[in-house]
């Protein structure tokens, strides 16, 4: 493998990794605050791409406007899901909430199949993203640097939100101890809703990026990225935002380089994430950056 090829793969890996990171942040925030694997997170990604698809196809609106509308509508949907399917189960065993989340995920997928049809559709990629730049001999489409840029920008906004604002402080308090936070007069339900606002909008942005990167969209497209990004969050240490970013990069770069160095293993690409997950859980269950928590009796 020449250096140019390697750099090419690395650029792709970083691009994919930052996309994983973006979606993983949403998972990790929701998990951090209510200890729930939000299975529907990946399907929100699908919902966002379809909204953008139909926005551009039916109403022929300009793409920046469509993207913003898609993010807003998906966010509303994410918050509604929390209100309807998760909030009534706040005091139920965690497994019950998990089953509810699985149910919502399947509802979205099957509803997607009914409403949008099962056939894959071609997502419109605005010319801006498809333009290819050459850095040395490495070909870099605009999209490849655009995705990491978006991730970094959103990450900075998020960090500001979490560590410099009142609602961010409330979120951290609820994540640390929900009951005590409630005693401190924090409106826990509102904070959880807000967490879903943040998580769902990140999923929507991630979904739009995903649609631009892999422009074949279908109602089941959210399932695999959803699982992989949850895995990224676990690898980095769930509940920890820097961890989610680290996990996303490890997974994205690892996946691309695995295929680059061992082309024979290309078919096993989807299994790579799961192998990495199981190794992480066995060797370092709290993830790369997670804190070790002693089990309370």
């Amino acid at each position: 493998m020449t250096l140019t090829e390697f750099l090419q793969h690395l650029a792709n890996g970083i691009s994919l990794g930052s996309l994983y990171a973006l979606i993983a942040i949403g998972y990790t925030m929701v998990y951090g605050i209510i200890r729930l694997v939000n299975f529907a997170h990946g399907d929100l990604l699908m919902v966002a791409t379809y909204m953008a698809f139909y926005g551009m196809l039916l109403f022929s609106l300009p793409w920046p406007l469509v993207f913003i509308l898609a993010v807003i509508l998906t966010t509303v949907m994410g918050v509604t899901i929390e209100r309807v399917a998760y909030r009534p189960l706040r005091d139920a065993p965690r497994i019950t909430v998990l089953i509810s989340a699985i149910g919502v995920s399947f509802l979205l997928q099957n509803l997607g199949l009914v409403v949008f049809g099962g056939r894959s559709k071609a997502f419109y990629v605005p010319p801006f993203f498809a333009t290819i730049n050459h850095i040395g001999e490495t070909a870099v489409p605009n999209l490849v640097w655009f995705i990491p840029l978006v991730t970094v920008a959103l990450l900075m906004i998020l960090m500001h939100l979490l560590y410099r604002t009142r609602i961010g402080m409330a979120m951290r308090a609820v994540a640390r101890d929900l009951d005590t936070a409630r005693l401190m007069a924090i409106d826990v339900d509102q904070v959880i809703s807000f967490t879903f606002v943040v998580g769902s909008s990140l999923a929507a942005v991630g979904g739009l990026m995903w649609g631009l990167k892999f422009p074949q969209i279908n109602p089941l497209m959210g399932a695999m990225p959803g699982l992989k990004c949850f895995i990224a969050a676990v690898i980095g240490g769930i509940g920890n935002i820097s961890g989610a970013v680290a996990g996303g990069f490890v997974l994205g770069v690892g996946e691309i380089l695995l295929v680059a160095f061992f082309p024979d293993l290309a078919g096993y690409r989807d299994a790579f994430a799961f192998v990495l997950l199981i190794l992480t859980l066995l060797i370092r269950p709290t993830g790369l950056l997670g804190e070790r928590v002693a089990e309370k009796v």
Binding site: V37, R94, I95, L227, F230, I231, A273, F274, L277, L281
Partner: peptide
Amino acid sequence: GDYLAIATLG
């Protein structure tokens, strides 16, 4: 719990 669910799914 949910870790087991994800690992078996994996």
